[in-house]
Amino acid sequence: MTLLQTHNLDAYYLDFQALYGVSISLDAGQIVAIIGPNGAGKTTLLRSLAGWVPVERECVTFDDESIGGFAAEKVVALGIASVPEGRRLFHSLSVEENLLMGQESNRSGDWSTDTVFDLFPVLQGLRKRRGSDLSGGEQQMVAIGRALMANPKVLLFDELSLGLAPTIVGDICRTLPVLRDKGVSMIVVEQDVRRALDLSDYVYCILEGKINLEGESNELAFDDVANAFFGV
């Protein structure tokens, strides 16, 4: 069943058009990866879905409802939560308070600070620390936990691995299937082609604001994807 879709989406970053007629689709229980070089429009795509970028109403549908251009707080209330690029924790709030901010969308469900601590036990001991005192990996866990506290149906994940140590990235990638099993579908923006193919069910490759390759992750050849990535 299709959960979240864009239809010929055009989007602008400041005065520049960043996306040209992009159509993607996320099924329930799926992990979709978006790959592409810097400046290709990946982040703008995710921001359009999350309500940070104004777009045409009909261009985005969620559960068969048009939601394009909804304010960010409305989008998350519908069940689309975000892990923003660079984590962006609230730096003067403690870890626990950061997690509690995830509940501001008032969606009911199973996620609580305790279940987040079950998922990332290391955060349990850091609960009173400020967001700014954590390592990059710990911050990413808090950012994921914070998004999960909204009990989302869809998680938008921007730059999963950017600036993180490889072992930490491995740990975090291993949690994605766990989350999928708990009913969270995901769109993940990732620069590392091989990792994107490994962790996802379906891949879109974006170049200069347009989709130039897409397919099931296990059916695409690495070389084809790499070529699409560089626009060769």
């Binding site: 999350a50 309500g51 960010a72 962006r88 609230f90 730096h91 901010m101 501001e104 969308s105 914070r146």
Partner: peptide, 10 residues
Amino acid sequence: DDPEVAQVMG
């Protein structure tokens, strides 16, 4: 701290 992210939290 960050009004934009606060908004994304709902």
